[in-house]
Simulated assay, not measured.
Amino acid sequence: MTKVFRSQYADNHQESTGFLFAKVYNDWHAKVKNTLKDVDLTHPQFIILSSLGALELQRDLISQVNLATFSDMDVTTVSQVLKLLLKKGLIERREHPKDSRTKVIFLTDSGREHMNRALPLVEEIDQTYFGQLGEQVTDFNQLLIKLEEMNG
């Protein structure tokens, strides 16, 4: 059998932006996941709690769709994560005061506590991990923002 590997990067995988990005993301993500275990949260749960906390600063009533849009997660995933957070007592769902078809989501005191314990842990990982770039971290962030704007 002839060995075939039809990649333009077969001779140098470090030229593959996607492969490099995946490797870096997987390394960073593993650190975040391991740290979040200490506060009994998964990464998606952390994203939803911190998104909810950030959205609360902007508006009083937050729907599942608002959360999905803000966190850039699909509505089905957000729904599944919210069910788990509800079981853990970290969020509450209430009927929207003006639209009975819509539920609004609130952090409970316990949810806020979990979020505020997790935020500095994850932010420390970010600062340590990406801080290795030194002054280039600002350029890196600007490139990520540009990609998000172009594709979001």
Rank of each mutant, 00 (worst) to 15 (best):
L90W: 11
T69G: 09
T69Y: 14
T76D: 05
S63P: 00
L85I: 08
Q8F: 15
S71L: 03
A10C: 13
N151I: 13
A118S: 04
Q127I: 12
Q45V: 04
L49W: 00
Q45D: 02
V24D: 05
S100K: 15
Q58S: 15
I47A: 10
E56I: 09
A30Y: 12
L41M: 00
V65R: 12
Q132P: 02
M1E: 09
S71H: 00
T77V: 09
H43C: 11
L36C: 00
D40L: 13
G152I: 03
V81N: 04
L67Q: 03
G18C: 03
T128S: 14
L52Q: 01
S110I: 11
V75E: 14
D139A: 10
R94L: 10
E56T: 11
M150S: 10
Y129G: 01
N66G: 01
M150R: 06
D72W: 14
L144R: 10
M73K: 05
A68Q: 01
T102E: 06
L84I: 15
T108F: 02
G53D: 13
K83L: 12
Q58N: 15
K31C: 03
E15T: 10
V104A: 07
D99L: 08
T35P: 03
L52V: 05
V4S: 02
K103S: 10
V65W: 07
E15M: 10
N34R: 14
S110F: 08
P97K: 06
S7M: 06
H114K: 15
Q127G: 10
